[in-house]
């Protein structure tokens, strides 16, 4: 089982999953925070934070998931009141209306929460609503392996990655 570990985020990838944990380079005065992408298909080198450039390549059996961290100013806001990772998710948690980019047959789910004192959103897309009963257990398997360290234990970022904002 491949293990991804960077920026205080760790995931033991279920079979068939690939992934990437990275921090985008700074743009202007904006402070970037870690983003973790997980997918059952080949992720292009440049993928938007929430799957732009990747979800269009999904087959019906594919899964794409994002763990996106927000800045500390989000802490304490009502939106991030939920404590801890979501899960286990059910088929009913995935809906077409949640998708960032509406694509035929796709369904998605999004959860906003605080884990280990860090504000996150978890967003997942399934390649086909009809296959949700088969795909949701894999999403839950991935969710169960996600670990987040408190902010103090997060190592410094690389000082600029290779992927630009989009």
């Amino acid at each position: 089982m491949a293990v991804l570990r960077a920026f205080g985020i760790e995931a033991s990838l279920p079979a068939g999953f690939g992934g990437r944990i990275f921090v985008r380079p700074k743009v202007g005065g904006e402070e970037p925070y870690p983003v973790a992408h997980f997918a059952t298909f080949w992720l292009p080198e440049e993928v938007g934070d929430f799957g732009g450039g990747a979800v269009t390549s999904m087959r019906p059996t594919d899964i794409f998931a994002v763990l996106f961290e927000y800045g500390p100013d989000a802490l304490g806001k009502a939106l991030f009141a939920r404590q801890g990772m979501p899960g286990p998710l059910s088929v009913g948690d995935f809906r077409p209306t949640v998708l960032r980019r509406g694509l035929p047959a796709h369904v998605g789910t999004q959860w906003v929460f605080t884990e280990a004192g860090r504000p996150f959103t978890f967003y997942a897309v399934l390649g086909a609503q009809a296959l949700a009963p088969q795909l949701v257990p894999s999403v839950n398997q991935l969710l169960a392996t996600l670990r987040v360290q408190p902010p103090g234990g997060v190592p410094a970022g690389p000082g600029g990655g290779t992927a630009p904002w989009n």
Partner: peptide, 11 residues
């Protein structure tokens, strides 16, 4: 990991 410190797994 990549040389810039990112974690990467490619199936």
């Amino acid at each position: 990991v990549t040389p810039t410190g990112e974690a990467l797994a490619l199936p």
